[in-house]
Design a protein around this nucleic acid. Structure first.
Length: 868
RNA sequence: GGGCGCAUAGCUCAGCUGGAAGAGCACCUGCCUUACAAGCAGGGGGUCGUAGGUUCAAGUCCUGCUGCGCCCA
């Protein structure tokens, strides 16, 4: 093994799978910890957002598993009604087949074929990331069990009065040819025109100016409206105007809804094609005239335009209005237009019979459980977003006019017209024995997703899994689906299980490109996680995502960052190589009582790192956890302990002890690392002589220990002195390879003891020939003052006196800043009386140290100047 | 229009309950020192968006303002 290469990842994953390590049964007796995966679309391909989501969940799954929990992380996919149907339709279209030609059943069969062929793609991709989901429990929203759960849920909600069918104006996508819920409409600001049309008063050549962005809808106008407070039009209310082009009379009504400042203050009312107008229409009992059909084409109500597309119809209408001199003026106008979230088509408000979930009461409980802390959002501020939506929740349109999905389990009697719902198919009317016609609409995919936390565990059966793992412990997802999914799961969980679906909800950020732009295929700025895995390995990607996952901020990701954390993988790899090289023929001693100081120190530092990582993970601070490990591994274990170990190995009585400690600490830090970088940690762990289990996955997560603070104080001094020596070398541009002689003038016994006690480490890490303790100055030398005393380096003949003076002046300057700051603080009577004692003492000590450094540097400058 | 978030080193960002500003990348200097040049050692660089307030002490708490982003209507 020479250099790091992530090729082993696939083998490692296979090893885990073959040993069945992803099942909760590996810790049968542990306390349950459960998560359900936010089910990706079965048509989907893994994108970087999934990668982040999966990585963070896997970190938790592995962490909790190693802590002894019986971890169930349940995977699955959702059937993504519209998306999947569209995709298969497109496939068929290539072969020249329309779905209507083959019929509903045959089409659905085609979709299943497609699903069975390609539906596991995203699951396989998730595996590449190292996800430790229990794939034996893999679920799909359309599978048998979940479909049963959906039917049961529908029937129960219906019977409890929470589902109703009615004719309402809904968001309609003329392209997908289905109703959409409010959430599935995306609004975009668009540059458009505002048309001011002339509506003449009946039998008059006086006209009202009516402003509209959609002149083509005038064919559906059944009134014009003014605000009751609007003095300009008060006298006209109740009179009639002539509808342009149609030449029909419609009434002038008054309604609060009208904004007096919009246009001329007179608006046309088109109940069939505008949500607000629909409400106005209801209040005033207006006729409803449908001018645009379900394919977005004009109806017979638009004379001469029947069958013309709505946008084409707009142009023609304008031309006609112009010809008839019915346009008062046209202005540029910016307004927001709703689009279908799936296909981008402009939404057409449309009146039709749809099924709705009555949400107000369901929301009440869902609000309560967040208010009372039964469910916690992390970061907490997302609770506000949640409440905001929940307080203003609208009924949820759940029917979709497509074929792929859960068919609504409702039946209408052909004879008596009665509607029945039933979990199991029925064909005879229970009332009149007439023939029952099954509902053709299917349910919104999110309806089945809302049941996910319990339907996947076996509900409606009271299975062992359901008993053990519901409520789930943690839901980890993106903020974009708080309304779509999180809120609805809470409502459904409360209704069906009478308990929350999860206790903690961690909301993670969006992954953007390095310019902060949303990644999208059209922009061409996507970072494909599978690409990254190919190039850098899943571990590098995971570690990068984890260390960037600070709460409440989006992640700007670039290849540079991934590259830099790949270097970290390489560093770990090489640390292992060093250890392996040096412990080849070494058998760990059973009981080592005598430890070298370096070993005591690194174990103390490791303990601190463990503590920090555990604490950070418990607080969902992935970035802090990852950073703590990074700092420890690189800048303590590698930079210092491994270097210091070279002073012992093969050189003194601690040789074996140090080898043992290298293995011991490295073994622990692999376990510490495992949740973040599962592959390399497992791969290297398998090679260790001191591994404790079949797999690192089921080894225990390390615990911290208490160590005397003394060892850390000693090493703090030691490291500062080593650094001082390195500064002298570097500032005087002396090659790292040249062995030097240093002198140390300690300020006290403690400092003197450190240099003596740890001479071995000093010599090695500063690459020194010798280090002598002295009491006086060393003339003709470079000096580096520290708070523990001065370090000298003999300058030989060619000392650059001026350069050295300049350098020392900087030292003085720095010390002076400290002195001024601390003096100011300590002379402040209020500080002395109010600040904590510890801080006062610390400040006094620091002041003394700064003064000492300054004085010594000053003296040296004077000396040097006398030489000049 | 309502709500939320962000503004800290050239870039990307940490900074918990307030006690002298940190990391990674980039940059400069010197090194192929026998784990690692995907590396080692050292260095420069910030009046923490702005104006006030609370406090002995404010990047950190409060208020106004400016700029950017997101969500909802």
């Amino acid at each position: 093994m020479d250099t790091y290469n992530s090729d082993f990842e696939k083998d490692i994953y296979r090893f885990w799978e073959e040993n069945d390590l992803f099942k909760p049964e590996v810790n049968k007796d542990g306390k349950p910890f459960s998560m359900v995966i936010p089910p990706p679309n079965v048509t989907g391909a893994l994108h970087i957002g999934h990668a982040l989501n999966q990585t963070l969940q896997d970190i938790f799954a592995r962490y909790k598993r190693m802590c002894g929990y019986s971890v169930l992380w349940l995977p699955g996919t959702d059937h993504a009604g519209i998306a999947t149907q569209t995709m298969v339709e497109r496939d068929l279209a290539k072969k020249g087949i329309k779905k209507e030609e083959i019929g509903r059943d045959a089409f659905i069969e085609k979709v299943w074929e497609w699903k069975n062929t390609y539906g596991n793609r995203i699951i396989d991709q998730i595996k590449r990331l190292g996800a430790s989901c229990d794939f034996s429990r893999l679920r799909f929203t359309m599978d048998e069990g979940l479909s049963r759960a959906v039917r049961k849920a529908f029937v129960e909600l219906y019977n409890a009065g929470y589902i109703y069918k009615g004719e309402y104006i809904i968001n309609w996508c003329p392209s997908c040819h289905t109703a959409l819920s409010d959430l599935e409409v995306e609004y975009e600001e668009e540059n458009s025109k505002l048309y001011y049309l002339k509506y003449f008063l009946e039998n008059s050549d006086v006209f009202l100016v009516v402003a509209t962005t959609r002149p083509e809808t005038l064919f559906g106008d059944t009134a014009v409206a003014v605000n009751p407070k609007d003095e300009r039009y008060k006298h006209l209310v109740g009179k009639k105007v002539v509808l342009p082009l149609v030449n029909k009379l419609i009434e002038i009504i008054e309604d609060e809804y009208v904004d007096m400042s919009f246009g001329s203050g007179v608006v046309k009312i088109t109940p069939a094609h505008d949500v607000n107008d629909f409400e106005v229409g209801k209040r005033h009992n207006l006729d409803i005239i449908i001018a645009i059909d379900d394919y977005g084409k004009m109806t017979h109500n638009a004379p001469g335009l029947e069958g013309v597309d709505r946008f084409e119809a707009r142009k023609i209408t304008i031309e006609k209005l112009k010809e008839a001199n019915l346009i008062y003026k046209i202005e540029d106008y910016v307004h927001s237009v709703g689009h279908c979230y799936r296909c981008g088509t402009v939404i057409e408000p449309y009146i039709s019979k749809q099924w709705f979930v009555k949400t107000k009461d369901l929301a009440k409980k869902a609000i309560e459980v967040v208010e009372n802390g039964s469910i916690k959002f992390i970061p907490k501020h997302w609770e506000k977003t949640y409440f905001e939506w929940m307080y203003n929740i609208k009924d949820w349109c759940i029917s979709r006019q497509i074929w792929w999905g859960h068919r609504i389990p409702a039946y209408t009697c052909k004879q008596c017209g009665e509607v029945f719902v039933s979990e199991n198919p029925i064909d005879k009317c229970p009332k009149c024995s007439g023939k029952l016609i099954p509902e053709t609409d299917v349910l919104d995919t999110w309806f089945s997703s809302a049941l996910w936390p319990f339907s996947t565990l076996g509900w409606p059966d009271n299975t062992e899994d359901l008993k053990k793992f519901y409520p789930t412990s943690l839901l980890l997802t993106g903020f974009d689906i708080i309304f779509f999914w999180v809120a609805r799961m809470i409502m459904m969980g409360m209704f069906f299980m009478n308990d929350v679906p999860f206790k903690d909800v961690y909301i993670h950020a969006l992954v953007r490109d390095k310019f902060g732009q949303k990644m999208s295929k059209t922009k061409g700025n996507v970072i494909d996680p599978l690409d990254v895995i190919e190039k850098y390995g899943a571990d590098s990607l995971r570690f990068t995502l984890a260390i960037l996952a600070a709460q409440g901020r989006d992640i700007k990701l670039s290849y540079d960052q991934i590259e830099s954390y790949r270097r970290f993988m390489n560093k770990i790899w090489n640390a292992y190589r060093f250890i392996e090289m040096n412990t080849k023929d070494f058998q760990p001693a059973v009981n080592t009582n005598a430890y070298s100081s370096a070993s005591l120190w690194i174990k103390s530092r490791l303990s601190k790192a463990i503590e920090q990582v555990r604490q950070s993970l418990d607080d969902y601070k992935f970035n802090e956890a990852a950073d703590s490990i990074y700092q420890f591994v690189w800048h303590e274990f590698c930079d210092y302990y491994i270097e210091m170990s070279k002073a012992h190995i093969g050189k003194d009585e601690f040789s074996d002890e140090v080898k043992g400690t290298l293995l011991e600490v490295f073994e622990q830090l692999l376990r510490l690392l495992h949740p973040f970088v599962p592959f390399i940690s497992e791969f290297l762990w398998q090679k260790l002589p001191n591994k404790s289990a079949k797999s690192i996955m089921i080894a225990k997560y390390p615990h911290s220990q208490e160590f005397a603070t003394q060892i850390e104080e000693e090493f703090e001094c030691l490291i500062e002195l080593i650094k001082a020596m390195r500064i002298l070398r570097s500032e005087n541009t002396i090659a790292a390879t040249k062995k030097l002689s240093f002198y140390f003038r300690p300020i006290n016994e403690f400092a003197k003891n450190i240099i003596e006690k740890y001479q071995k480490y000093v010599l090695l890490l500063a690459n020194a020939k010798e280090i002598s303790i002295i009491k006086t100055d060393v003339p003709k030398s470079f000096i580096q003052p520290t708070k523990y005393g001065d370090i000298f380096l003999e300058a030989g003949q060619n000392i650059d006196v001026e350069g050295e003076i300049l350098r020392l002046k900087k030292v003085i300057e720095k010390a002076q800043v400290s002195i001024d700051f601390l003096n100011k603080r300590l002379r402040n009577q209020e500080f002395i009386s109010k600040a904590p004692k510890q801080l006062i003492e610390k400040s006094k000590k620091e002041l003394q140290e700064a003064i000492l450094i300054k004085e010594n540097a000053k003296k040296r400058i004077e000396q040097l100047q006398s030489v000049l």
